[in-house]
């Protein structure tokens, strides 16, 4: 039964990803990416990671994709230009095929081996995934968390610089 649900999610993710890269109109393409993110969230639910599913929807689909949408509006991109041939050089075609083969192999290999973390599913069911994630994050991975605080400071400074340039009309 789980396999049926997983196959549904997997097929829909791959299909919407393919639909997203082949649309001419960019907003339609973004709409398919939104569908893909919602199904990725569903995939996280199957893995007993409910907090990650919600974070996927709130941050990735709800914030970052909105930023993408605003970029499309800002640059006023009308349509994707269609070329006659997708990749020109023989070497890039070879690299593309090798890349796809590598990911197909990874997919089949992880499908056969079941990977397990150190926390058992019973513990996560009892305590709730968010609480376990919080304990692990703030007890063991404290330093990466502080580095993340600094990383989040960078876009704030970037926005400040753009706003400053806008106010002084390009002559910071």
């Amino acid at each position: 039964m789980v396999k049926i649900i997983f196959v549904y999610f997997a097929i829909l993710i791959i299909a919407s990803a393919l639909a997203a890269i082949t649309r001419k109109n960019l907003v339609y393409s973004l709409f398919w990416i939104l569908l893909m993110f919602i199904h990725l969230g569903g995939l996280y639910l199957l893995l007993n990671a409910e907090f990650l599913a919600m974070v996927q929807l709130i941050v990735y689909a709800g914030a970052i994709l909105v930023m993408f949408l605003f970029v499309i509006f800002l640059l006023n991109l009308k349509e994707e230009i269609k070329e006659a041939v997708f990749l020109h050089k023989w070497s890039s075609r070879l690299y593309g095929i090798l890349f796809l083969l590598f990911f197909a192999f990874l997919g089949v290999w992880s499908f056969k081996n079941n990977f397990k973390g150190i926390y058992s599913i019973e513990l996560i069911e009892k305590e709730g995934h968010t609480k376990v994630l919080g304990t692990v994050l703030f007890n063991e991975y404290l330093f990466p968390f502080l580095i993340l605080g600094f990383i989040l400071l960078v876009p704030l400074l970037g926005v400040g610089i753009v706003a400053l340039r806008r106010k002084t009309n390009g002559t910071t």
Binding site: I58, G128, L133, G134, T135, L137, V159
Partner: peptide
Amino acid sequence: AILFVVFDVEVIFLYPWALA
């Protein structure tokens, strides 16, 4: 939109901290 992304990520980190 950019500011919203940054603050959204920050607020999301508050939830596991608040629970644990």
